[in-house]
């Protein structure tokens, strides 16, 4: 009697699981695909990554202890699938020359500090003008240029809105590591945007504009 009852219960639970799983996956599909796009950088590979992650997630659905955690759980599978695919393709994680030490110059790089001109406050806002000029693809390209390790945390945090604690769970690293990778990743991202903006001619030489300002200021004061 007992084993038969258990089997029946199990069948019912699995059927429930399947409906629940499908609803969740379809609901998160755009987000999963968005993250995958920034991880593998093209549509075809992103579709493959999502399909692979969904298949793996279904196979390991019993590891989901709390259905409330479905989102971080499936993003963890997506991220791990990406990392293990990199390894399979013998693509070395792009970290060799990059320490995780957040005190490096890249972390200290700040777009704001490059752009902000306090004496211009009452007439313009160069840093906001800069952001207004950036196109979606400028930002996507800057994210794509990040080394894998840092790109993952920027994607999980800035694009997908996961908390530090959730990211620590997704990546199985301490919260402190999440913080330092994120600081480093954001610094590198801002540096990439700055470089790109200079190359694309989005930024005028700041020295010149400050010289112009002083000229004007002198005249105004007279």
């Amino acid at each position: 009697m007992m084993p038969l009852q258990l089997n029946q219960e199990e069948t019912v639970t699995q059927a429930d699981d399947r409906g629940f799983f499908e609803e969740k996956v379809i609901g998160l599909l755009d987000q999963l695909f968005g993250a995958a796009m920034r991880l593998v950088k093209n549509r075809e590979d992103a579709e493959d990554l999502v399909a692979e992650a969904v298949t793996k997630a279904w196979a390991s659905r019993r590891s989901l202890k709390d259905t409330e955690n479905f989102r971080p759980w499936i993003f963890r599978i997506l991220t791990n699938t990406f990392i293990s695919d990199c390894r399979k393709r013998a693509v070395r994680p792009q970290t060799e020359t990059l320490s995780e030490n957040p005190s490096d110059a890249e972390t200290a790089f700040s777009l704001f500090e490059e752009l902000h001109q306090p004496f211009l406050l009452w007439w313009g806002n160069p840093e906001k003008e800069f952001l207004n000029k950036l196109l979606r693809e400028d930002l996507a390209k800057a994210v794509d240029a990040l080394p894998d390790l840092f790109r993952i945390v920027v994607v999980l945090s800035d694009l997908e809105g996961f908390s530090y604690q959730e990211m620590a769970g997704i990546l199985k690293v301490p919260v402190g590591t999440v913080r330092s990778r994120l600081a480093r990743g954001r610094g590198l991202l801002q540096k990439a945007l700055w470089r790109h903006a200079k190359e694309a001619g989005l930024i005028k030489e700041s020295k010149k504009s400050s010289e112009r300002f002083y000229e004007k200021d002198k005249n105004d004061r007279l």
Binding site: G34, V143, D158
Partner: peptide
């Protein structure tokens, strides 16, 4: 910048891909 990054990361899957995932499921 954070808001713009989030918007830049938004993607929509095509109908064909959604169908593919549904048939996989």
């Amino acid at each position: 910048l954070k808001t713009q990054l989030r918007e830049a990361g938004r993607e929509t899957v095509g109908a064909a891909f959604e169908e593919k995932i549904k048939s996989l499921l």
